[in-house]
Design a protein around this nucleic acid. Structure first.
Lengths: 226, 226
DNA sequence: TCGACCATTGACTGACCAGTCAATCTACCT
DNA sequence: AGGTAGATTGACTGGTCAGTCAATGGTCGA
Protein backbone atom coordinates (compact mmCIF):
# COMPACT_ATOMS: atom_id res chain seq x y z
CA UNK A 1 0.00 0.00 0.00
CA UNK A 2 2.39 2.64 1.26
CA UNK A 3 5.92 3.52 0.14
CA UNK A 4 8.52 1.02 1.32
CA UNK A 5 11.04 3.66 2.42
CA UNK A 6 14.06 2.57 0.45
CA UNK A 7 17.42 4.35 0.68
CA UNK A 8 17.23 5.28 4.35
CA UNK A 9 19.25 8.47 4.86
CA UNK A 10 21.54 7.76 7.79
CA UNK A 11 22.94 5.67 10.65
CA UNK A 12 20.46 4.87 13.47
CA UNK A 13 20.72 1.26 14.46
CA UNK A 14 17.15 0.04 14.75
CA UNK A 15 16.06 -0.23 18.35
CA UNK A 16 13.33 -2.11 20.13
CA UNK A 17 13.57 -5.21 18.00
CA UNK A 18 16.04 -8.04 17.65
CA UNK A 19 16.59 -7.13 14.01
CA UNK A 20 19.98 -6.24 12.62
CA UNK A 21 20.93 -3.71 9.98
CA UNK A 22 22.51 -5.42 6.98
CA UNK A 23 25.22 -3.66 5.04
CA UNK A 24 23.99 -0.55 3.19
CA UNK A 25 20.37 -1.50 3.69
CA UNK A 26 19.08 -0.27 7.01
CA UNK A 27 15.83 -1.51 8.52
CA UNK A 28 13.48 1.42 9.03
CA UNK A 29 12.62 2.02 12.68
CA UNK A 30 8.85 1.87 12.63
CA UNK A 31 8.48 2.64 16.31
CA UNK A 32 10.38 5.87 15.86
CA UNK A 33 8.39 6.71 12.74
CA UNK A 34 5.18 6.32 14.73
CA UNK A 35 6.44 8.54 17.55
CA UNK A 36 7.56 11.22 15.12
CA UNK A 37 4.28 11.08 13.24
CA UNK A 38 2.38 11.30 16.51
CA UNK A 39 4.19 14.51 17.39
CA UNK A 40 3.09 16.10 14.15
CA UNK A 41 -0.48 14.87 14.43
CA UNK A 42 -0.88 15.79 18.11
CA UNK A 43 0.55 19.23 17.42
CA UNK A 44 -1.76 19.78 14.48
CA UNK A 45 -5.03 18.36 15.81
CA UNK A 46 -4.55 17.83 19.50
CA UNK A 47 -4.47 14.51 21.33
CA UNK A 48 -8.21 14.20 21.84
CA UNK A 49 -9.25 15.42 18.43
CA UNK A 50 -7.04 13.08 16.41
CA UNK A 51 -7.67 9.46 15.55
CA UNK A 52 -5.17 6.66 15.88
CA UNK A 53 -5.56 6.15 12.14
CA UNK A 54 -4.32 9.72 11.59
CA UNK A 55 -1.08 8.80 13.32
CA UNK A 56 -0.73 5.57 11.37
CA UNK A 57 -1.39 7.36 8.08
CA UNK A 58 1.07 10.11 8.92
CA UNK A 59 3.69 7.47 9.71
CA UNK A 60 2.92 5.58 6.51
CA UNK A 61 2.18 2.47 8.49
CA UNK A 62 -0.78 0.16 8.97
CA UNK A 63 -3.27 0.93 11.70
CA UNK A 64 -2.57 -2.18 13.69
CA UNK A 65 1.16 -1.66 13.83
CA UNK A 66 0.77 1.09 16.35
CA UNK A 67 -0.64 -1.47 18.74
CA UNK A 68 2.32 -3.72 18.07
CA UNK A 69 4.63 -1.10 19.55
CA UNK A 70 2.34 0.65 22.03
CA UNK A 71 -0.45 -0.69 24.21
CA UNK A 72 -2.62 2.38 23.62
CA UNK A 73 -2.86 5.83 22.10
CA UNK A 74 -2.23 7.32 25.54
CA UNK A 75 0.99 5.42 25.88
CA UNK A 76 2.32 7.07 22.72
CA UNK A 77 1.87 10.46 24.33
CA UNK A 78 3.33 9.25 27.61
CA UNK A 79 6.40 7.99 25.80
CA UNK A 80 6.91 11.28 23.99
CA UNK A 81 6.60 13.23 27.21
CA UNK A 82 8.83 11.02 29.33
CA UNK A 83 11.55 10.87 26.67
CA UNK A 84 11.83 14.64 26.52
CA UNK A 85 11.14 15.49 30.14
CA UNK A 86 13.77 12.98 31.19
CA UNK A 87 16.37 14.77 29.13
CA UNK A 88 15.38 18.05 30.71
CA UNK A 89 15.53 16.76 34.27
CA UNK A 90 18.94 15.30 33.54
CA UNK A 91 20.11 18.64 32.22
CA UNK A 92 18.84 20.59 35.24
CA UNK A 93 20.50 18.09 37.54
CA UNK A 94 23.84 18.58 35.80
CA UNK A 95 23.57 22.35 35.80
CA UNK A 96 22.69 22.36 39.46
CA UNK A 97 25.70 20.22 40.31
CA UNK A 98 28.13 22.63 38.68
CA UNK A 99 29.78 25.53 40.48
CA UNK A 100 28.16 28.48 38.73
CA UNK A 101 26.48 31.78 39.61
CA UNK A 102 22.65 31.46 39.88
CA UNK A 103 22.16 33.73 36.96
CA UNK A 104 24.15 31.35 34.76
CA UNK A 105 22.30 28.31 36.06
CA UNK A 106 18.92 29.85 35.33
CA UNK A 107 20.21 31.06 31.98
CA UNK A 108 21.25 27.50 31.13
CA UNK A 109 17.78 26.21 31.95
CA UNK A 110 16.03 28.91 29.97
CA UNK A 111 18.41 28.28 27.08
CA UNK A 112 17.76 24.58 27.09
CA UNK A 113 14.01 24.99 26.99
CA UNK A 114 14.07 27.70 24.34
CA UNK A 115 16.46 25.61 22.24
CA UNK A 116 14.19 22.60 22.65
CA UNK A 117 11.45 24.67 21.12
CA UNK A 118 13.69 25.94 18.37
CA UNK A 119 14.77 22.41 17.53
CA UNK A 120 11.35 20.80 17.62
CA UNK A 121 8.47 23.22 18.15
CA UNK A 122 5.83 20.55 17.54
CA UNK A 123 7.17 18.32 20.30
CA UNK A 124 7.30 21.18 22.78
CA UNK A 125 3.81 22.23 21.81
CA UNK A 126 2.51 18.74 22.50
CA UNK A 127 4.31 18.47 25.81
CA UNK A 128 3.11 21.83 27.05
CA UNK A 129 -0.43 21.75 25.74
CA UNK A 130 -1.27 18.10 26.30
CA UNK A 131 0.69 17.29 29.42
CA UNK A 132 2.30 20.11 31.37
CA UNK A 133 -0.73 22.37 31.25
CA UNK A 134 -3.43 19.74 31.29
CA UNK A 135 -4.45 19.58 34.92
CA UNK A 136 -6.84 16.75 34.13
CA UNK A 137 -5.82 13.43 32.62
CA UNK A 138 -2.17 13.67 31.64
CA UNK A 139 -1.16 16.45 33.93
CA UNK A 140 -2.21 14.22 36.83
CA UNK A 141 -0.38 11.20 35.46
CA UNK A 142 2.94 12.97 35.25
CA UNK A 143 2.58 15.22 38.25
CA UNK A 144 5.58 13.62 39.90
CA UNK A 145 7.88 14.26 36.95
CA UNK A 146 6.67 17.83 36.58
CA UNK A 147 7.01 18.54 40.27
CA UNK A 148 10.58 17.28 40.21
CA UNK A 149 11.53 20.02 37.77
CA UNK A 150 10.02 22.72 39.95
CA UNK A 151 11.70 21.23 42.98
CA UNK A 152 15.15 21.37 41.40
CA UNK A 153 14.72 24.94 40.24
CA UNK A 154 13.55 25.84 43.72
CA UNK A 155 16.70 24.19 45.04
CA UNK A 156 18.85 26.46 42.89
CA UNK A 157 17.00 29.51 44.18
CA UNK A 158 17.38 28.38 47.78
CA UNK A 159 21.14 28.07 47.38
CA UNK A 160 21.28 31.56 45.90
CA UNK A 161 19.38 32.87 48.89
CA UNK A 162 21.80 31.20 51.27
CA UNK A 163 24.67 32.85 49.42
CA UNK A 164 22.97 36.22 49.78
CA UNK A 165 22.53 36.70 46.05
CA UNK A 166 18.73 36.37 46.09
CA UNK A 167 16.34 38.03 48.51
CA UNK A 168 15.07 35.76 51.24
CA UNK A 169 11.63 37.31 51.51
CA UNK A 170 10.44 35.55 48.36
CA UNK A 171 9.78 31.84 48.86
CA UNK A 172 12.01 29.69 46.70
CA UNK A 173 9.24 27.40 45.50
CA UNK A 174 7.31 30.48 44.51
CA UNK A 175 10.22 31.91 42.61
CA UNK A 176 10.64 28.58 40.83
CA UNK A 177 7.02 28.60 39.69
CA UNK A 178 7.36 32.17 38.53
CA UNK A 179 10.50 31.45 36.57
CA UNK A 180 9.21 28.30 34.93
CA UNK A 181 5.81 29.90 34.34
CA UNK A 182 7.37 32.81 32.54
CA UNK A 183 9.34 30.50 30.26
CA UNK A 184 6.35 28.37 29.44
CA UNK A 185 4.24 31.41 28.77
CA UNK A 186 6.78 32.68 26.27
CA UNK A 187 6.73 29.31 24.49
CA UNK A 188 2.96 29.47 24.56
CA UNK A 189 3.21 32.91 22.99
CA UNK A 190 5.20 31.40 20.13
CA UNK A 191 2.88 28.43 19.84
CA UNK A 192 -0.19 30.67 19.64
CA UNK A 193 1.52 33.08 17.29
CA UNK A 194 1.31 35.90 19.83
CA UNK A 195 5.03 36.57 19.96
CA UNK A 196 7.38 36.80 16.97
CA UNK A 197 9.59 33.76 16.36
CA UNK A 198 13.03 33.49 14.77
CA UNK A 199 16.67 33.11 15.71
CA UNK A 200 17.17 36.60 17.11
CA UNK A 201 13.93 36.43 19.08
CA UNK A 202 14.88 33.10 20.61
CA UNK A 203 18.21 34.45 21.76
CA UNK A 204 16.68 37.65 23.02
CA UNK A 205 14.02 35.71 24.89
CA UNK A 206 16.64 33.83 26.86
CA UNK A 207 18.23 37.05 27.96
CA UNK A 208 14.95 38.80 28.77
CA UNK A 209 13.70 35.89 30.81
CA UNK A 210 16.78 35.77 32.99
CA UNK A 211 17.00 39.53 33.24
CA UNK A 212 13.39 39.93 34.33
CA UNK A 213 13.28 37.15 36.87
CA UNK A 214 16.76 37.59 38.34
CA UNK A 215 16.19 41.33 38.44
CA UNK A 216 13.20 40.78 40.65
CA UNK A 217 14.84 38.22 42.87
CA UNK A 218 18.34 39.44 43.52
CA UNK A 219 19.42 41.55 46.45
CA UNK A 220 20.48 45.15 45.96
CA UNK A 221 24.04 44.23 46.76
CA UNK A 222 24.10 41.58 44.09
CA UNK A 223 22.52 43.97 41.66
CA UNK A 224 25.16 46.63 42.12
CA UNK A 225 27.78 44.08 41.17
CA UNK A 226 26.08 42.87 38.00
CA UNK B 1 -37.08 12.42 38.98
CA UNK B 2 -34.90 15.02 40.67
CA UNK B 3 -35.56 17.47 43.47
CA UNK B 4 -37.76 20.38 42.45
CA UNK B 5 -35.63 23.04 44.10
CA UNK B 6 -38.14 24.64 46.39
CA UNK B 7 -37.28 27.56 48.65
CA UNK B 8 -34.81 29.23 46.37
CA UNK B 9 -32.24 31.02 48.53
CA UNK B 10 -32.13 34.53 47.13
CA UNK B 11 -33.03 37.22 44.57
CA UNK B 12 -31.89 36.42 41.01
CA UNK B 13 -34.63 37.23 38.57
CA UNK B 14 -34.65 34.35 36.11
CA UNK B 15 -32.97 35.29 32.85
CA UNK B 16 -33.06 33.91 29.36
CA UNK B 17 -36.78 33.12 29.34
CA UNK B 18 -39.93 35.19 29.25
CA UNK B 19 -40.94 33.80 32.62
CA UNK B 20 -41.64 36.00 35.63
CA UNK B 21 -40.96 35.37 39.29
CA UNK B 22 -44.23 35.13 41.19
CA UNK B 23 -44.43 36.27 44.81
CA UNK B 24 -42.44 34.09 47.23
CA UNK B 25 -42.11 31.33 44.66
CA UNK B 26 -39.19 31.96 42.38
CA UNK B 27 -38.77 30.09 39.11
CA UNK B 28 -35.47 28.24 39.19
CA UNK B 29 -33.05 29.40 36.52
CA UNK B 30 -32.24 26.17 34.76
CA UNK B 31 -29.77 27.76 32.38
CA UNK B 32 -27.71 29.00 35.30
CA UNK B 33 -27.98 25.64 37.03
CA UNK B 34 -26.59 23.96 33.94
CA UNK B 35 -23.69 26.41 33.70
CA UNK B 36 -22.84 25.99 37.36
CA UNK B 37 -23.03 22.23 37.11
CA UNK B 38 -20.83 22.29 34.02
CA UNK B 39 -18.14 24.17 35.94
CA UNK B 40 -18.07 21.47 38.58
CA UNK B 41 -18.08 18.62 36.08
CA UNK B 42 -15.48 20.15 33.77
CA UNK B 43 -13.24 20.87 36.74
CA UNK B 44 -13.59 17.35 38.05
CA UNK B 45 -13.38 15.30 34.85
CA UNK B 46 -12.20 17.67 32.14
CA UNK B 47 -14.16 18.83 29.13
CA UNK B 48 -13.25 15.92 26.87
CA UNK B 49 -13.57 13.20 29.47
CA UNK B 50 -17.03 14.14 30.70
CA UNK B 51 -20.36 13.30 29.10
CA UNK B 52 -23.21 15.69 28.53
CA UNK B 53 -25.29 13.45 30.75
CA UNK B 54 -22.82 14.08 33.60
CA UNK B 55 -23.60 17.78 33.37
CA UNK B 56 -27.34 17.19 33.21
CA UNK B 57 -27.20 14.84 36.21
CA UNK B 58 -25.09 17.28 38.20
CA UNK B 59 -27.58 20.03 37.43
CA UNK B 60 -30.50 17.77 38.37
CA UNK B 61 -32.02 18.31 34.97
CA UNK B 62 -33.03 16.12 32.04
CA UNK B 63 -30.48 15.38 29.36
CA UNK B 64 -32.37 17.13 26.59
CA UNK B 65 -32.77 20.38 28.50
CA UNK B 66 -29.15 21.24 27.99
CA UNK B 67 -29.86 21.37 24.27
CA UNK B 68 -32.80 23.65 24.91
CA UNK B 69 -30.45 26.28 26.31
CA UNK B 70 -27.25 25.57 24.42
CA UNK B 71 -26.65 24.38 20.88
CA UNK B 72 -23.81 22.08 21.93
CA UNK B 73 -21.54 20.94 24.72
CA UNK B 74 -18.84 23.24 23.35
CA UNK B 75 -21.08 26.24 23.61
CA UNK B 76 -21.49 25.64 27.34
CA UNK B 77 -17.75 25.96 27.79
CA UNK B 78 -17.59 28.97 25.49
CA UNK B 79 -20.26 30.69 27.53
CA UNK B 80 -18.44 30.04 30.80
CA UNK B 81 -15.21 31.38 29.40
CA UNK B 82 -16.63 34.49 27.76
CA UNK B 83 -18.68 35.42 30.84
CA UNK B 84 -15.64 35.40 33.07
CA UNK B 85 -13.04 36.68 30.64
CA UNK B 86 -15.32 39.59 29.78
CA UNK B 87 -15.40 40.65 33.42
CA UNK B 88 -11.63 40.48 33.56
CA UNK B 89 -11.10 42.53 30.42
CA UNK B 90 -13.54 45.12 31.75
CA UNK B 91 -11.59 45.27 35.00
CA UNK B 92 -8.23 45.70 33.30
CA UNK B 93 -9.70 48.42 31.12
CA UNK B 94 -10.90 50.32 34.18
CA UNK B 95 -7.63 49.94 36.03
CA UNK B 96 -5.71 51.12 33.02
CA UNK B 97 -7.87 54.22 32.68
CA UNK B 98 -7.18 55.32 36.27
CA UNK B 99 -4.30 57.53 37.28
CA UNK B 100 -2.21 55.12 39.31
CA UNK B 101 1.42 54.00 39.64
CA UNK B 102 2.21 50.93 37.50
CA UNK B 103 2.89 48.86 40.54
CA UNK B 104 -0.63 49.51 41.77
CA UNK B 105 -2.14 48.73 38.40
CA UNK B 106 -0.35 45.43 38.15
CA UNK B 107 -1.19 44.70 41.77
CA UNK B 108 -4.86 45.29 40.98
CA UNK B 109 -4.72 42.83 38.11
CA UNK B 110 -2.92 40.18 40.12
CA UNK B 111 -5.39 40.72 42.95
CA UNK B 112 -8.37 40.34 40.69
CA UNK B 113 -7.15 37.07 39.23
CA UNK B 114 -6.11 35.61 42.57
CA UNK B 115 -9.44 36.64 44.07
CA UNK B 116 -11.26 35.05 41.15
CA UNK B 117 -9.54 31.82 42.03
CA UNK B 118 -10.30 32.23 45.72
CA UNK B 119 -13.95 32.88 44.97
CA UNK B 120 -14.46 30.08 42.42
CA UNK B 121 -11.46 27.81 42.00
CA UNK B 122 -13.36 25.36 39.80
CA UNK B 123 -14.27 28.03 37.29
CA UNK B 124 -10.71 29.32 37.08
CA UNK B 125 -9.43 25.80 36.71
CA UNK B 126 -11.74 25.19 33.78
CA UNK B 127 -10.86 28.47 32.11
CA UNK B 128 -7.14 27.95 32.45
CA UNK B 129 -6.94 24.26 31.70
CA UNK B 130 -9.57 23.99 28.98
CA UNK B 131 -9.28 27.34 27.24
CA UNK B 132 -6.37 29.60 28.08
CA UNK B 133 -3.78 26.86 27.96
CA UNK B 134 -5.33 24.69 25.28
CA UNK B 135 -3.51 25.76 22.17
CA UNK B 136 -5.67 23.46 20.09
CA UNK B 137 -9.44 23.63 19.92
CA UNK B 138 -10.62 26.22 22.41
CA UNK B 139 -7.43 28.19 22.71
CA UNK B 140 -7.72 28.90 18.99
CA UNK B 141 -11.37 29.86 19.22
CA UNK B 142 -10.79 32.50 21.85
CA UNK B 143 -7.38 33.67 20.75
CA UNK B 144 -8.70 37.16 20.11
CA UNK B 145 -10.10 37.54 23.62
CA UNK B 146 -6.95 36.16 25.21
CA UNK B 147 -4.70 38.35 23.11
CA UNK B 148 -6.69 41.41 24.16
CA UNK B 149 -5.74 40.83 27.79
CA UNK B 150 -2.03 40.56 26.97
CA UNK B 151 -2.31 43.64 24.81
CA UNK B 152 -3.78 45.75 27.60
CA UNK B 153 -1.19 44.62 30.12
CA UNK B 154 1.49 45.43 27.56
CA UNK B 155 -0.07 48.86 27.23
CA UNK B 156 0.31 49.46 30.94
CA UNK B 157 3.96 48.45 30.77
CA UNK B 158 4.59 50.72 27.79
CA UNK B 159 3.22 53.71 29.68
CA UNK B 160 5.45 52.91 32.63
CA UNK B 161 8.42 52.80 30.30
CA UNK B 162 7.53 56.19 28.86
CA UNK B 163 7.36 57.59 32.37
CA UNK B 164 10.81 56.18 33.09
CA UNK B 165 9.58 53.84 35.81
CA UNK B 166 10.24 50.64 33.83
CA UNK B 167 13.38 49.81 31.86
CA UNK B 168 13.01 50.25 28.14
CA UNK B 169 15.30 47.41 27.16
CA UNK B 170 12.63 44.81 27.94
CA UNK B 171 9.88 44.66 25.31
CA UNK B 172 6.50 45.52 26.76
CA UNK B 173 4.69 42.62 25.10
CA UNK B 174 7.32 40.33 26.54
CA UNK B 175 6.93 41.76 30.00
CA UNK B 176 3.17 41.31 29.71
CA UNK B 177 3.55 37.63 28.84
CA UNK B 178 5.97 37.15 31.70
CA UNK B 179 3.66 38.83 34.18
CA UNK B 180 0.55 37.00 33.09
CA UNK B 181 2.46 33.74 32.76
CA UNK B 182 3.72 33.99 36.30
CA UNK B 183 0.20 34.57 37.63
CA UNK B 184 -1.24 31.69 35.70
CA UNK B 185 1.54 29.40 36.81
CA UNK B 186 0.81 30.20 40.44
CA UNK B 187 -2.86 29.38 39.89
CA UNK B 188 -1.76 26.19 38.17
CA UNK B 189 0.35 25.42 41.21
CA UNK B 190 -2.74 25.69 43.40
CA UNK B 191 -4.84 23.69 40.96
CA UNK B 192 -2.28 20.88 40.84
CA UNK B 193 -1.76 21.00 44.58
CA UNK B 194 1.89 22.03 44.16
CA UNK B 195 1.59 25.24 46.15
CA UNK B 196 -0.18 25.65 49.48
CA UNK B 197 -3.59 27.35 49.36
CA UNK B 198 -5.41 29.45 51.93
CA UNK B 199 -6.18 33.06 52.77
CA UNK B 200 -2.70 34.07 53.83
CA UNK B 201 -1.12 32.35 50.85
CA UNK B 202 -3.46 34.10 48.45
CA UNK B 203 -2.59 37.48 49.89
CA UNK B 204 1.09 36.72 49.97
CA UNK B 205 0.97 35.51 46.37
CA UNK B 206 -0.35 38.86 45.20
CA UNK B 207 2.50 40.64 46.86
CA UNK B 208 5.18 38.20 45.68
CA UNK B 209 3.97 38.33 42.11
CA UNK B 210 4.12 42.10 41.93
CA UNK B 211 7.38 42.25 43.83
CA UNK B 212 9.11 39.75 41.59
CA UNK B 213 7.96 41.10 38.27
CA UNK B 214 8.16 44.81 39.07
CA UNK B 215 11.52 44.23 40.71
CA UNK B 216 12.82 42.87 37.43
CA UNK B 217 11.27 45.54 35.28
CA UNK B 218 11.75 48.80 37.10
CA UNK B 219 14.65 51.19 36.62
CA UNK B 220 17.22 51.68 39.36
CA UNK B 221 15.92 55.17 39.95
CA UNK B 222 12.39 53.93 40.50
CA UNK B 223 13.69 51.21 42.76
CA UNK B 224 15.52 53.61 45.04
CA UNK B 225 12.24 55.44 45.61
CA UNK B 226 10.13 52.39 46.48
C1' DT C 1 -62.11 26.32 30.77
C1' DC C 2 -59.44 26.17 26.74
C1' DG C 3 -55.62 26.51 24.02
C1' DA C 4 -51.12 28.31 22.95
C1' DC C 5 -46.53 28.42 23.95
C1' DC C 6 -42.57 27.38 26.10
C1' DA C 7 -40.04 24.24 29.42
C1' DT C 8 -38.90 19.74 30.29
C1' DT C 9 -38.29 14.83 29.64
C1' DG C 10 -35.47 10.71 28.28
C1' DA C 11 -35.37 6.99 24.90
C1' DC C 12 -33.35 6.55 20.63
C1' DT C 13 -30.09 6.97 16.54
C1' DG C 14 -26.28 7.47 13.81
C1' DA C 15 -21.56 8.27 13.75
C1' DC C 16 -17.32 7.60 15.34
C1' DC C 17 -13.26 5.32 16.89
C1' DA C 18 -10.05 2.68 20.16
C1' DG C 19 -8.55 -1.57 20.31
C1' DT C 20 -8.59 -6.78 18.48
C1' DC C 21 -7.21 -10.49 15.71
C1' DA C 22 -6.57 -13.76 12.08
C1' DA C 23 -4.11 -13.65 8.00
C1' DT C 24 -0.01 -12.48 5.42
C1' DC C 25 4.66 -11.14 4.73
C1' DT C 26 9.74 -10.97 5.42
C1' DA C 27 14.11 -12.05 7.15
C1' DC C 28 16.91 -15.22 8.61
C1' DC C 29 18.38 -19.74 10.29
C1' DT C 30 19.27 -24.77 9.54
C1' DA D 1 13.84 -25.88 0.72
C1' DG D 2 11.45 -25.63 4.78
C1' DG D 3 10.59 -23.67 9.20
C1' DT D 4 10.14 -20.19 12.72
C1' DA D 5 9.39 -15.81 14.82
C1' DG D 6 8.56 -11.37 14.70
C1' DA D 7 6.69 -7.50 11.72
C1' DT D 8 2.94 -5.85 9.25
C1' DT D 9 -1.69 -5.57 7.50
C1' DG D 10 -6.56 -3.76 7.67
C1' DA D 11 -11.31 -5.36 8.21
C1' DC D 12 -14.11 -5.83 12.00
C1' DT D 13 -16.36 -5.28 16.70
C1' DG D 14 -18.12 -3.40 20.75
C1' DG D 15 -18.97 0.39 23.24
C1' DT D 16 -19.56 5.16 23.77
C1' DC D 17 -21.81 9.45 23.34
C1' DA D 18 -23.34 13.95 21.11
C1' DG D 19 -27.26 15.44 19.44
C1' DT D 20 -32.50 14.62 17.97
C1' DC D 21 -37.27 14.49 18.63
C1' DA D 22 -41.86 13.21 19.80
C1' DA D 23 -44.30 13.29 23.88
C1' DT D 24 -45.59 15.45 28.29
C1' DG D 25 -46.09 19.08 31.73
C1' DG D 26 -46.90 23.70 33.44
C1' DT D 27 -48.17 28.60 33.14
C1' DC D 28 -50.79 32.19 31.69
C1' DG D 29 -53.82 34.99 28.99
C1' DA D 30 -58.33 35.22 26.90
Amino acid sequence: MSSPIRGYPEGHTPRGTGRQATRAKVVPDRRRAILDAAVRVFARQGFHACRVSDIADEAGVAYGLLYHYFPSKEEVLNTLFLERWGVMLEMIREVDAQKLPVRDKLAAIASFIVDSYRHDPDLMKVIIVEVTRAANSFGQTHLGEIREAYRMIGEIVTKAQREGVFKTDIDAEFAAMTFYGAIEQVLTGWIFGLLPEGEEHFERAKWLLVETICGGLQTRTAERLS
